Simulated assay, not measured.
Amino acid sequence: MTFIRLRLNGCWLAPLMLLAALLAGTAIGETSIPVDTILKVLANKLWGAEYAVDRIDAGIIWNYRLSRAVVAACCGTSLALAGVVLQALLRNPLADPYLMGISAGASTGAVAVMVAGLGAGALTLSAGAFAGAGLAFGLVVLLAHAASSGTGGGRGTQAAGAIILAGIAGSQLFNALTAFIIAKSANAEQARGILFWLLGNLSGVRWTDAALALPAALGGLLICLWHRRALDAFTFGTDSAASMGIAVRPIRALLIIAMALVTAVMVSMVGAIGFVGLVIPHAMRFIVGSQHVRLVPASALAGALFLIGADILSRVIVPGQVLPIGVITSLIGAPAFALILVRGRRAT
Protein backbone atom coordinates (compact mmCIF):
# COMPACT_ATOMS: atom_id res chain seq x y z
CA MET A 1 0.00 0.00 0.00
CA THR A 2 2.84 2.39 0.80
CA PHE A 3 4.43 1.79 -2.62
CA ILE A 4 1.09 2.39 -4.39
CA ARG A 5 0.59 5.59 -2.40
CA LEU A 6 4.07 6.83 -3.35
CA ARG A 7 3.40 6.10 -7.03
CA LEU A 8 0.09 7.99 -6.91
CA ASN A 9 1.75 10.94 -5.20
CA GLY A 10 4.49 10.88 -7.85
CA CYS A 11 1.88 10.96 -10.61
CA TRP A 12 0.57 14.22 -9.17
CA LEU A 13 3.84 15.76 -8.05
CA ALA A 14 5.89 15.18 -11.21
CA PRO A 15 3.81 17.38 -13.57
CA LEU A 16 3.44 20.04 -10.89
CA MET A 17 7.20 20.15 -10.32
CA LEU A 18 7.85 20.31 -14.06
CA LEU A 19 5.27 23.07 -14.50
CA ALA A 20 6.80 25.06 -11.63
CA ALA A 21 10.27 24.67 -13.18
CA LEU A 22 9.02 25.81 -16.60
CA LEU A 23 7.38 28.86 -15.02
CA ALA A 24 10.60 29.64 -13.13
CA GLY A 25 12.66 29.25 -16.29
CA THR A 26 10.31 31.66 -18.06
CA ALA A 27 10.08 34.20 -15.24
CA ILE A 28 13.74 34.44 -14.18
CA GLY A 29 16.33 36.01 -16.42
CA GLU A 30 18.08 39.26 -17.23
CA THR A 31 14.81 40.96 -16.29
CA SER A 32 12.25 39.27 -14.07
CA ILE A 33 8.72 38.81 -15.36
CA PRO A 34 5.77 38.29 -12.98
CA VAL A 35 4.11 34.88 -13.06
CA ASP A 36 0.67 36.40 -13.64
CA THR A 37 1.98 38.04 -16.82
CA ILE A 38 3.27 34.65 -18.00
CA LEU A 39 -0.11 33.04 -17.33
CA LYS A 40 -1.90 35.79 -19.25
CA VAL A 41 0.39 35.33 -22.25
CA LEU A 42 -0.20 31.58 -22.16
CA ALA A 43 -3.95 32.11 -21.98
CA ASN A 44 -3.78 34.49 -24.94
CA LYS A 45 -1.69 32.12 -27.05
CA LEU A 46 -3.30 28.80 -26.14
CA TRP A 47 -6.94 29.66 -25.55
CA GLY A 48 -7.43 32.91 -27.42
CA ALA A 49 -7.95 35.07 -24.33
CA GLU A 50 -7.60 38.81 -24.72
CA TYR A 51 -5.65 39.90 -21.66
CA ALA A 52 -3.82 43.19 -22.03
CA VAL A 53 -0.10 42.36 -22.00
CA ASP A 54 2.87 44.44 -23.11
CA ARG A 55 3.97 43.24 -26.55
CA ILE A 56 7.64 43.16 -25.60
CA ASP A 57 6.94 41.03 -22.53
CA ALA A 58 4.71 38.74 -24.59
CA GLY A 59 7.43 38.29 -27.20
CA ILE A 60 10.09 37.56 -24.57
CA ILE A 61 7.86 35.03 -22.80
CA TRP A 62 6.51 33.14 -25.80
CA ASN A 63 9.24 33.41 -28.42
CA TYR A 64 12.32 33.25 -26.21
CA ARG A 65 12.07 32.07 -22.62
CA LEU A 66 9.29 29.47 -22.70
CA SER A 67 10.63 27.70 -25.78
CA ARG A 68 14.08 27.79 -24.20
CA ALA A 69 12.77 26.22 -20.98
CA VAL A 70 10.94 23.49 -22.92
CA VAL A 71 14.07 22.58 -24.91
CA ALA A 72 16.14 22.60 -21.71
CA ALA A 73 13.68 20.17 -20.11
CA CYS A 74 13.74 17.88 -23.15
CA CYS A 75 17.54 17.97 -23.31
CA GLY A 76 17.92 17.19 -19.59
CA THR A 77 15.45 14.32 -19.87
CA SER A 78 17.19 12.83 -22.91
CA LEU A 79 20.71 13.04 -21.50
CA ALA A 80 19.65 11.60 -18.14
CA LEU A 81 17.90 8.68 -19.86
CA ALA A 82 20.94 8.07 -22.04
CA GLY A 83 23.04 7.86 -18.89
CA VAL A 84 20.63 5.38 -17.28
CA VAL A 85 20.64 3.13 -20.35
CA LEU A 86 24.40 3.21 -20.94
CA GLN A 87 25.17 2.51 -17.29
CA ALA A 88 22.81 -0.48 -17.33
CA LEU A 89 23.96 -1.91 -20.66
CA LEU A 90 27.67 -1.45 -19.98
CA ARG A 91 27.41 -2.21 -16.26
CA ASN A 92 29.62 0.80 -15.63
CA PRO A 93 28.67 3.60 -13.22
CA LEU A 94 30.79 6.12 -15.14
CA ALA A 95 29.11 5.65 -18.53
CA ASP A 96 27.26 8.62 -19.98
CA PRO A 97 26.93 10.16 -23.48
CA TYR A 98 29.60 12.77 -22.77
CA LEU A 99 32.27 10.40 -21.45
CA MET A 100 31.46 7.69 -24.00
CA GLY A 101 32.22 10.00 -26.93
CA ILE A 102 28.62 10.15 -28.20
CA SER A 103 28.28 13.89 -27.56
CA ALA A 104 31.70 14.60 -29.12
CA GLY A 105 30.82 12.56 -32.21
CA ALA A 106 27.45 14.26 -32.53
CA SER A 107 29.17 17.65 -32.30
CA THR A 108 31.60 16.65 -35.06
CA GLY A 109 28.77 15.49 -37.31
CA ALA A 110 26.73 18.64 -36.73
CA VAL A 111 29.71 20.93 -37.34
CA ALA A 112 30.64 18.99 -40.49
CA VAL A 113 27.15 19.62 -41.88
CA MET A 114 26.98 23.21 -40.64
CA VAL A 115 30.42 24.45 -41.65
CA ALA A 116 31.98 21.99 -44.10
CA GLY A 117 28.76 21.36 -46.02
CA LEU A 118 28.85 17.59 -45.55
CA GLY A 119 26.06 15.97 -47.53
CA ALA A 120 25.76 18.90 -49.94
CA GLY A 121 22.56 20.08 -48.29
CA ALA A 122 20.93 16.63 -48.22
CA LEU A 123 21.73 16.10 -44.53
CA THR A 124 20.10 18.01 -41.69
CA LEU A 125 22.01 18.97 -38.56
CA SER A 126 20.27 16.20 -36.62
CA ALA A 127 21.12 13.61 -39.27
CA GLY A 128 24.76 14.67 -39.31
CA ALA A 129 24.86 14.63 -35.52
CA PHE A 130 23.33 11.13 -35.43
CA ALA A 131 25.86 9.86 -37.95
CA GLY A 132 28.71 11.32 -35.91
CA ALA A 133 27.30 9.91 -32.66
CA GLY A 134 26.94 6.44 -34.17
CA LEU A 135 30.45 6.53 -35.62
CA ALA A 136 31.96 7.69 -32.34
CA PHE A 137 30.19 5.07 -30.25
CA GLY A 138 31.09 2.33 -32.71
CA LEU A 139 34.72 3.37 -32.56
CA VAL A 140 34.65 3.40 -28.75
CA VAL A 141 33.12 -0.08 -28.63
CA LEU A 142 35.67 -1.48 -31.05
CA LEU A 143 38.56 0.11 -29.18
CA ALA A 144 37.29 -1.12 -25.81
CA HIS A 145 36.80 -4.62 -27.21
CA ALA A 146 40.33 -4.66 -28.60
CA ALA A 147 41.78 -3.35 -25.32
CA SER A 148 39.90 -5.85 -23.15
CA SER A 149 39.70 -8.81 -25.55
CA GLY A 150 39.22 -11.99 -23.63
CA THR A 151 38.46 -10.28 -20.34
CA GLY A 152 35.92 -11.82 -18.07
CA GLY A 153 35.46 -13.14 -14.60
CA GLY A 154 38.04 -11.49 -12.36
CA ARG A 155 39.00 -9.08 -15.14
CA GLY A 156 35.59 -7.41 -15.26
CA THR A 157 36.96 -4.27 -13.64
CA GLN A 158 39.65 -4.06 -16.33
CA ALA A 159 36.95 -4.36 -19.04
CA ALA A 160 34.89 -1.60 -17.42
CA GLY A 161 37.94 0.63 -17.20
CA ALA A 162 38.77 -0.09 -20.84
CA ILE A 163 35.34 1.21 -21.89
CA ILE A 164 35.83 4.50 -20.07
CA LEU A 165 39.39 4.94 -21.38
CA ALA A 166 38.17 4.18 -24.90
CA GLY A 167 35.41 6.75 -24.43
CA ILE A 168 37.90 9.39 -23.35
CA ALA A 169 40.12 8.59 -26.32
CA GLY A 170 37.14 8.75 -28.69
CA SER A 171 35.99 12.06 -27.21
CA GLN A 172 39.43 13.58 -27.66
CA LEU A 173 39.65 12.32 -31.24
CA PHE A 174 36.29 13.74 -32.28
CA ASN A 175 36.88 16.98 -30.39
CA ALA A 176 40.11 17.33 -32.39
CA LEU A 177 38.23 16.61 -35.62
CA THR A 178 35.67 19.28 -34.71
CA ALA A 179 38.42 21.81 -34.04
CA PHE A 180 40.08 20.90 -37.35
CA ILE A 181 36.85 21.40 -39.30
CA ILE A 182 36.27 24.77 -37.65
CA ALA A 183 39.84 25.93 -38.27
CA LYS A 184 39.76 24.80 -41.90
CA SER A 185 36.28 25.84 -43.01
CA ALA A 186 34.88 28.50 -40.67
CA ASN A 187 35.58 32.22 -40.66
CA ALA A 188 36.32 34.10 -37.44
CA GLU A 189 32.70 35.00 -36.75
CA GLN A 190 31.48 31.46 -37.40
CA ALA A 191 34.25 30.05 -35.22
CA ARG A 192 33.24 32.22 -32.25
CA GLY A 193 29.60 31.22 -32.56
CA ILE A 194 30.35 27.51 -32.96
CA LEU A 195 32.78 27.40 -30.06
CA PHE A 196 30.19 29.06 -27.81
CA TRP A 197 27.57 26.60 -29.07
CA LEU A 198 29.85 23.62 -28.40
CA LEU A 199 29.94 24.57 -24.71
CA GLY A 200 26.16 24.30 -24.56
CA ASN A 201 24.03 27.19 -25.72
CA LEU A 202 20.25 27.54 -25.47
CA SER A 203 20.10 31.14 -26.63
CA GLY A 204 19.14 30.35 -30.21
CA VAL A 205 16.43 27.73 -29.65
CA ARG A 206 12.85 28.50 -30.70
CA TRP A 207 9.56 26.63 -31.01
CA THR A 208 10.75 24.88 -34.18
CA ASP A 209 13.49 23.29 -32.06
CA ALA A 210 11.02 22.42 -29.31
CA ALA A 211 8.81 20.71 -31.91
CA LEU A 212 11.70 18.33 -32.61
CA ALA A 213 13.08 18.02 -29.07
CA LEU A 214 9.76 17.16 -27.42
CA PRO A 215 8.89 14.06 -29.48
CA ALA A 216 12.53 12.90 -29.31
CA ALA A 217 12.54 13.11 -25.51
CA LEU A 218 9.11 11.51 -25.14
CA GLY A 219 10.07 8.76 -27.58
CA GLY A 220 13.24 8.00 -25.64
CA LEU A 221 11.27 7.94 -22.38
CA LEU A 222 8.66 5.55 -23.78
CA ILE A 223 11.32 3.20 -25.16
CA CYS A 224 13.10 3.11 -21.81
CA LEU A 225 9.86 2.49 -19.92
CA TRP A 226 8.83 -0.26 -22.34
CA HIS A 227 12.17 -2.03 -21.81
CA ARG A 228 12.49 -1.32 -18.09
CA ARG A 229 12.54 -5.06 -17.25
CA ALA A 230 15.26 -5.66 -19.80
CA LEU A 231 17.32 -2.84 -18.29
CA ASP A 232 16.97 -4.50 -14.88
CA ALA A 233 18.18 -7.75 -16.41
CA PHE A 234 21.15 -6.11 -18.17
CA THR A 235 22.47 -4.81 -14.85
CA PHE A 236 23.27 -8.45 -13.96
CA GLY A 237 25.11 -9.06 -17.25
CA THR A 238 24.19 -10.27 -20.72
CA ASP A 239 24.29 -13.93 -19.73
CA SER A 240 21.82 -13.34 -16.93
CA ALA A 241 19.63 -11.28 -19.25
CA ALA A 242 19.61 -14.07 -21.84
CA SER A 243 18.70 -16.63 -19.17
CA MET A 244 15.70 -14.45 -18.26
CA GLY A 245 14.41 -14.65 -21.82
CA ILE A 246 15.68 -11.24 -22.97
CA ALA A 247 16.59 -10.97 -26.66
CA VAL A 248 19.97 -9.49 -25.81
CA ARG A 249 21.33 -8.33 -29.16
CA PRO A 250 18.21 -6.72 -30.69
CA ILE A 251 17.14 -5.00 -27.48
CA ARG A 252 20.64 -3.75 -26.75
CA ALA A 253 20.97 -2.46 -30.32
CA LEU A 254 17.57 -0.75 -30.13
CA LEU A 255 18.37 0.96 -26.83
CA ILE A 256 21.79 2.15 -27.97
CA ILE A 257 20.45 3.46 -31.29
CA ALA A 258 17.56 5.22 -29.54
CA MET A 259 19.86 6.90 -27.02
CA ALA A 260 22.37 7.87 -29.70
CA LEU A 261 19.53 9.38 -31.72
CA VAL A 262 18.04 11.46 -28.92
CA THR A 263 21.52 12.59 -27.87
CA ALA A 264 22.28 13.60 -31.45
CA VAL A 265 19.03 15.56 -31.72
CA MET A 266 19.80 17.49 -28.54
CA VAL A 267 23.45 18.12 -29.43
CA SER A 268 22.45 19.43 -32.86
CA MET A 269 20.31 22.07 -31.10
CA VAL A 270 22.25 23.06 -28.00
CA GLY A 271 25.76 21.60 -28.32
CA ALA A 272 27.50 19.12 -26.05
CA ILE A 273 26.39 19.38 -22.41
CA GLY A 274 28.40 17.24 -20.04
CA PHE A 275 27.76 15.34 -16.82
CA VAL A 276 23.93 15.36 -16.90
CA GLY A 277 23.84 11.67 -17.84
CA LEU A 278 26.39 10.89 -15.15
CA VAL A 279 25.12 12.84 -12.16
CA ILE A 280 21.35 12.45 -12.45
CA PRO A 281 21.09 8.62 -12.59
CA HIS A 282 23.35 8.24 -9.54
CA ALA A 283 21.38 10.82 -7.57
CA MET A 284 18.10 9.12 -8.45
CA ARG A 285 19.40 5.67 -7.54
CA PHE A 286 20.16 7.06 -4.09
CA ILE A 287 16.57 8.37 -3.81
CA VAL A 288 14.35 5.79 -5.57
CA GLY A 289 16.58 2.71 -5.83
CA SER A 290 17.95 0.76 -8.79
CA GLN A 291 14.78 -0.73 -10.27
CA HIS A 292 14.20 0.91 -13.61
CA VAL A 293 10.44 1.05 -13.20
CA ARG A 294 11.14 3.94 -10.80
CA LEU A 295 14.62 4.97 -11.91
CA VAL A 296 13.65 5.80 -15.52
CA PRO A 297 10.81 8.28 -14.79
CA ALA A 298 12.65 9.75 -11.79
CA SER A 299 15.79 10.36 -13.87
CA ALA A 300 13.75 11.85 -16.72
CA LEU A 301 12.07 14.32 -14.36
CA ALA A 302 15.24 15.13 -12.44
CA GLY A 303 17.18 15.69 -15.68
CA ALA A 304 14.55 18.15 -16.88
CA LEU A 305 14.52 20.04 -13.57
CA PHE A 306 18.32 20.04 -13.36
CA LEU A 307 18.88 21.52 -16.81
CA ILE A 308 16.16 24.14 -16.40
CA GLY A 309 17.82 25.15 -13.13
CA ALA A 310 21.26 25.20 -14.77
CA ASP A 311 19.87 27.40 -17.54
CA ILE A 312 18.48 29.82 -14.99
CA LEU A 313 21.86 29.98 -13.25
CA SER A 314 23.63 30.57 -16.57
CA ARG A 315 21.52 33.70 -17.08
CA VAL A 316 21.78 35.23 -13.60
CA ILE A 317 25.13 34.13 -12.13
CA VAL A 318 27.05 36.84 -14.02
CA PRO A 319 25.03 40.09 -14.29
CA GLY A 320 24.58 41.25 -17.85
CA GLN A 321 26.08 38.09 -19.36
CA VAL A 322 24.75 34.66 -20.33
CA LEU A 323 27.16 31.79 -19.69
CA PRO A 324 27.16 28.59 -21.75
CA ILE A 325 24.99 26.10 -19.91
CA GLY A 326 27.73 23.47 -20.23
CA VAL A 327 29.86 25.59 -17.90
CA ILE A 328 27.22 25.32 -15.17
CA THR A 329 26.65 21.58 -15.59
CA SER A 330 30.41 20.95 -15.55
CA LEU A 331 30.88 23.02 -12.39
CA ILE A 332 28.32 20.78 -10.71
CA GLY A 333 29.16 17.54 -12.48
CA ALA A 334 32.95 17.55 -12.13
CA PRO A 335 32.90 17.37 -8.31
CA ALA A 336 30.20 14.68 -8.53
CA PHE A 337 32.39 12.74 -10.98
CA ALA A 338 35.31 12.95 -8.54
CA LEU A 339 33.08 11.75 -5.71
CA ILE A 340 31.97 8.73 -7.74
CA LEU A 341 35.59 7.87 -8.50
CA VAL A 342 36.58 8.10 -4.83
CA ARG A 343 33.62 6.03 -3.64
CA GLY A 344 34.24 3.43 -6.34
CA ARG A 345 37.88 3.16 -5.31
CA ARG A 346 36.98 2.69 -1.65
CA ALA A 347 34.44 0.02 -2.54
CA THR A 348 37.04 -2.13 -4.35
Rank of each mutant, 00 (worst) to 15 (best):
I328Y: 11
I317M: 15
H292V: 04
F306S: 10
M284E: 04
H292W: 00
L313C: 14
A298C: 04
P297Y: 06
L295R: 08
I308V: 12
I317S: 15
S314W: 07
R315A: 04
I328M: 10
M284Q: 06
A304N: 05
L313F: 12
T329Q: 10
Q321T: 15
L323M: 15
A283Y: 00
I328H: 11
V288E: 11
A302T: 05
F286G: 02
V293H: 04
R294C: 02
A310D: 14
G303K: 07
V316W: 08
F286Y: 07
L313S: 13
A304Y: 05
G309F: 07
I325H: 09
L313G: 05
H292E: 03
V327Q: 09
D311S: 06
R285E: 05
G326S: 13
V293A: 13
R315P: 03
I312Y: 00
R315E: 05
F286S: 12
R294P: 00
Q291K: 10
I325P: 06
G303D: 07
A310F: 12
L313P: 04
V296Q: 02
G289P: 00
A300D: 06
A302G: 01
Q321M: 14
L305N: 10
G326Q: 14
A304Q: 07
F286W: 07
A304L: 07
S290N: 13
S290W: 02
P324W: 11
V293Q: 07
T329C: 08
P297K: 09
A283N: 01
R315N: 04
L323N: 10
S299L: 03
L301S: 07
P297R: 10
R294H: 08
G309S: 08
I312S: 01
I325L: 14
V327T: 14
P324Y: 12
A310M: 14
M284D: 00
